[in-house]
Design a protein around this nucleic acid. Structure first.
Ligand code: FES
Ligand code: FES
Lengths: 146, 146
DNA sequence: TAATTCGTAATATTAAAAGTTACATGAAAC
DNA sequence: GTTTCATGTAACTTTTAATATTACGAATTA
């Protein structure tokens, strides 16, 4: 399967939107993210449903952040995207008859569940504000070098 | 993408082989694992390359475990399979120009790397012997009930 | 030598993400 | 109020990676 890159995508879009301040259209976002306006709308639509961004139609419409950057974490975004499957590795059968397979699945599920919990915990501790600050640090360093 | 279920598969096969004692053919393993003999050979071949199992051709040939169940961990199997991609979630571009995307990727990579480290560490602590014991416990419980 | 079983290349299928096309709906500007 | 811009969404196609299948060669045993 392809890997799901929506979290990365949407973060990218949000930071650009945060820098900008005014609404950005799907078209603009799509160009900058090397994708398609419809994909942008689909993905951002999920964030809108979660109350993180707002969309407006017609001229001067577009997408805008409505949530407080300090209170939105990457975990919130993950949730807004519908809690996509984390692992590319999984059990062959989910509820097998065979006792051998049950023992195997139990052990694997355990390890994977713990890793997932750690990941989500980590995501829950990173706010958009922090990422934005991170970007500005990089930007400053970049300008100094140039 | 489909999820990679080879680790689960191969574990299943190994435990059955451990119970059995004598060589099992790809055909037998395939039937029991609901898959194809060629898939079994391909996958088990990787384990053979890692020195975990041995294969023999011709009549009375087949697959057999040659490693000590106490010293083989799930991490060893993961490695033998070629360290397959762990996450179904990833960055859109791996080495982006855009500083915004760089900041995003850095944060995500960090969290994912930690989760992966935890997972592999966990896998490294589970031996085949322990799984086998686990199975036998389940089996005993099953027989008591029946 | 015949039967069995692995080894492996080439090809096809499947599952899931991402991209595309097409068109309806709504809001702003004039 | 008509034109223009932009989102909303359904339907379909493409891409990617895993898995499955077919076919046949090579080695081993009896
Ligand atoms: S990479 Fe940020 S502008 Fe497209
Ligand atoms: S599930 Fe096939 S026999 Fe273990």
């Amino acid at each position: 399967m392809k890997r799901d890159s929506r979290l990365s995508s949407v973060l990218h879009a949000l930071l650009h939107m945060a820098e900008r301040g005014e609404p950005m259209t799907s078209e603009t976002l799509a160009v900058c993210m090397c994708t398609n306006p419809v994909v942008v709308r689909r993905t951002m639509g999920l964030l809108r449903d979660a109350g993180l961004v707002a969309s407006a139609r017609g001229p001067s419409g577009g997408w805008q952040i409505v949530a407080d950057l300090n209170s939105v974490t990457l975990r919130d975004l993950y949730d807004a995207l519908g809690e996509p499957t984390v692992f590319a590795i999984g059990n062959r059968h989910e509820a097998p008859q065979c006792l051998v397979e049950q023992a195997v699945n139990a052990a694997l599920d355990d390890a994977f569940a713990d890793a997932e919990a750690l990941l989500l915990d980590r995501l829950g501790k990173i706010t958009l504000a922090r990422l934005s600050a991170d970007f500005n640090r990089r930007y400053a360093a970049h300008r100094t070098r140039a």
